[in-house]
Simulated assay, not measured.
Amino acid sequence: MRVLITGASGQLGVELSKLLSRKHDVIKVYNSSEISDGYRLDLTDFPRLEDFLIRKRPDVVINSAALTDVDRCEVEKERAHKVNAETVRHMVRVGRVVDAYLIHVSTDYVFAGERGNYREEDTPNPVNYYGLSKLLGETYAMSYDDSLVVRTSGVFRHKGFPVYVYKTLKEGKTLLAFNGFYSPISARRLAQAIEELVDLRKTGVLHVAGERVSRYELAMKIKEEFHLPGEVREVNEIKGWIAKRPLDSSLDSSRARKLLSVDFQALDIEGMVI
């Protein structure tokens, strides 16, 4: 089976490429100079994107590419809309032509964060432009019958909040931890879950994320686990943030836990590349 992965140089893309290459013919697509064994492609060059997908005729497309810098999305809204939303529309256009199954990776930030533990059927209501652009991407994906939207939260590998915590505290510095809640998951565990979903070919929306935890609690766990010297302080906001953040965007992944064999809920700190 031919599996095309966009964002192949990203945290999730790297793990997906390693896993799926063992069983499938993987086509890696990226927009950076970080990897060489794939195809460099600007996904916002829509005619070229559509032509590429038609020529490669993948059986499965996994869209792990996104503009995830929340504050940058708030400033560069046109860019965020192109990458996180319009790109998906063009993938769907070609998907219908080549009969490809689409897995689109989305985010917990499509929710307002007023209560947390959001289920798949809960109504999205993003509080920042990043969440809005990702919600628009979901809408395009779900307009295609043979697609699955995988919502996740706080993915980490060589970057992300847990890695930032580790590096900051290891240097003996003080870490300011936002007291909001989310559901962090390592890129490795998320990739394992998506590997199963490729074979199951489910459609609709599915939440695949870790357990609900506050960033302060998580920082303290990492400090204790690695015996790090730095100090952790809980704060209500971080100075310098441009975009509003949801207070509790944690996801209820009970549906996915019943469906999948991988234990993606466990906090896979070992999944950090540090």
Rank of each mutant, 00 (worst) to 15 (best):
residue 2 R to P: 05
residue 2 R to I: 11
residue 5 I to A: 07
residue 10 G to K: 07
residue 11 Q to A: 11
residue 13 G to R: 00
residue 16 L to H: 05
residue 21 S to Y: 00
residue 21 S to C: 02
residue 21 S to E: 01
residue 22 R to M: 13
residue 35 I to Q: 02
residue 37 D to S: 03
residue 37 D to T: 04
residue 43 L to E: 00
residue 49 L to D: 02
residue 51 D to L: 11
residue 63 N to R: 02
residue 65 A to P: 03
residue 65 A to S: 04
residue 67 L to H: 00
residue 76 E to D: 14
residue 76 E to F: 14
residue 78 E to Y: 13
residue 79 R to N: 13
residue 82 K to E: 13
residue 87 T to C: 10
residue 92 V to N: 05
residue 95 G to P: 06
residue 100 A to H: 07
residue 102 L to M: 04
residue 102 L to A: 04
residue 103 I to W: 01
residue 110 V to H: 02
residue 112 A to V: 08
residue 119 R to A: 04
residue 122 D to C: 01
residue 123 T to Q: 09
residue 124 P to M: 11
residue 130 Y to I: 06
residue 131 G to M: 06
residue 143 S to M: 12
residue 143 S to R: 11
residue 150 V to F: 09
residue 150 V to T: 07
residue 150 V to Q: 06
residue 151 R to G: 00
residue 152 T to M: 13
residue 154 G to I: 05
residue 156 F to Q: 05
residue 158 H to C: 07
residue 158 H to R: 13
residue 164 Y to D: 15
residue 168 T to M: 05
residue 170 K to S: 12
residue 178 F to W: 15
residue 179 N to Y: 13
residue 184 P to M: 01
residue 184 P to Y: 01
residue 186 S to R: 09
residue 192 Q to E: 15
residue 193 A to S: 09
residue 194 I to K: 00
residue 197 L to Y: 06
residue 203 T to C: 03
residue 204 G to I: 06
residue 205 V to N: 01
residue 208 V to I: 03
residue 208 V to N: 01
residue 209 A to M: 00
residue 212 R to N: 02
residue 214 S to M: 09
residue 223 K to G: 02
residue 240 G to V: 15
residue 241 W to M: 12
residue 243 A to F: 10
residue 244 K to P: 12
residue 246 P to K: 03
residue 258 K to R: 15
residue 258 K to D: 14
residue 270 E to Y: 15
residue 274 I to T: 14
